[in-house]
């Protein structure tokens, strides 16, 4: 697995990689980078304009916007990666099972997925989150519960294709067990596409999570989460539109970074795939 550094995708891939690395660094180094406490309220400095003390100004409670953005990176990144991890943990075994075993198992699993896919995922996540009650953990669970279906489907499709490969037959002839074949020969070939899909979806998940927080179902105020920040500053859109601009830009930047990175990862490894015949 490596980035395509020589092909045409050079620039976007590296831009994406640098953006994502930068975002991750900001999240990890948040306590060092933030100029002040993201939760500290200074009613005297409400809605202050950018200054040396508050580089991006303050919000309606006098909190430092920059610090909140920086800490928000942590939350957004952590939440979306957690969702992704849970989603992959559910969808990989299920997709692998459906595709590899096939037959009735496959049909049953796919019909269940069809039913779940028939619901609009965001609305379903909303419903699940509403039933579980507000809170980060519940939101993440609700999200993973509706998001895995698409992955399972894609993974099943890849497995169906990979299990017909000659080397799977060769592995069977050499006496490998189905479990070993499923992991060593089938899943291994799907790792790269899964990673591409995952990195493409981090942005989408981030966006959707911010959307749910905006609606009041995810992270709760005063947490410095981008969606919450957007929601909080909605009332000041006339007087202080920059309060909505910054979190919006942060979300857009993250999504862009992950999408570009995904684009770079999607380029096939030429050395191993260009020689089909022999």
């Amino acid at each position: 697995m490596k980035l395509d550094v020589k092909g045409k995708a050079k620039a976007p891939a590296w831009t994406g990689a640098i953006l994502v690395a930068g975002i991750a660094a900001v999240g990890i180094l948040a306590p060092l980078l933030a100029p002040s406490d993201p939760l500290e309220i200074h009613m005297a400095h409400r809605l202050a304009a950018p200054s040396v003390e508050y580089p991006l100004g303050t919000d309606h409670l006098g909190r430092c916007v920059l610090s909140r953005l920086i800490y928000g990176t942590r939350l957004s990144l952590f939440y979306s990666l957690t969702v992704l991890a849970v989603v992959l943990a559910i969808s990989i075994p299920i997709g692998l099972l459906a595709g590899y075993v096939g037959g009735r198992t496959d049909r049953i699993i796919m019909r269940i997925i069809d039913v779940l896919l028939a619901f609009p995922s965001l609305i379903l996540a909303l419903a699940v989150a509403a039933v579980l009650g507000p809170g980060e953990l519940h939101l993440l669970l609700a999200f993973a519960a509706v998001w895995w279906t698409g992955y399972a489907r894609v993974i099943r499709g890849m497995v169906l294709q990979l299990k017909e490969k000659d080397y799977v037959m060769a592995a069977r002839a050499s006496g490998s067990s189905h479990l070993r074949i499923a992991f060593d020969h089938v899943l291994r070939g799907a790792v790269r596409p899964i990673l591409v899909l995952a990195s493409l979806e981090v942005g989408t998940i981030m966006l959707a999570l911010a959307g749910l927080s905006f609606l009041g179902l995810g992270a709760q105020p005063p947490a410095p989460e981008w969606g919450v920040m957007l929601s909080d500053s909605r009332a000041y859109i006339q007087t202080a539109p920059r309060l909505m601009l910054y979190p919006g830009l942060a979300i857009a930047g993250c999504v862009l970074g992950f999408n570009l990175l995904a684009e770079g990862l999607r380029r096939p490894d030429r050395r191993s795939e260009s020689r089909g015949g022999a």
């Binding site: 490969k165 000659d166 080397y167 037959m169 060769a170 592995a171 002839a173 050499s174 006496g175 060593d184 020969h185 291994r188 070939g189 191993s272 795939e273 020689r275 089909g276 015949g277 022999a278």
Partner: peptide, 17 residues
């Protein structure tokens, strides 16, 4: 299995890349 083995038509595709 160790008693009976097979050589495939297209060797390249019979190897996991």
């Amino acid at each position: 299995r160790s008693r009976m083995q097979i050589v495939f038509q297209n060797s390249f595709s019979s190897f996991n890349p």
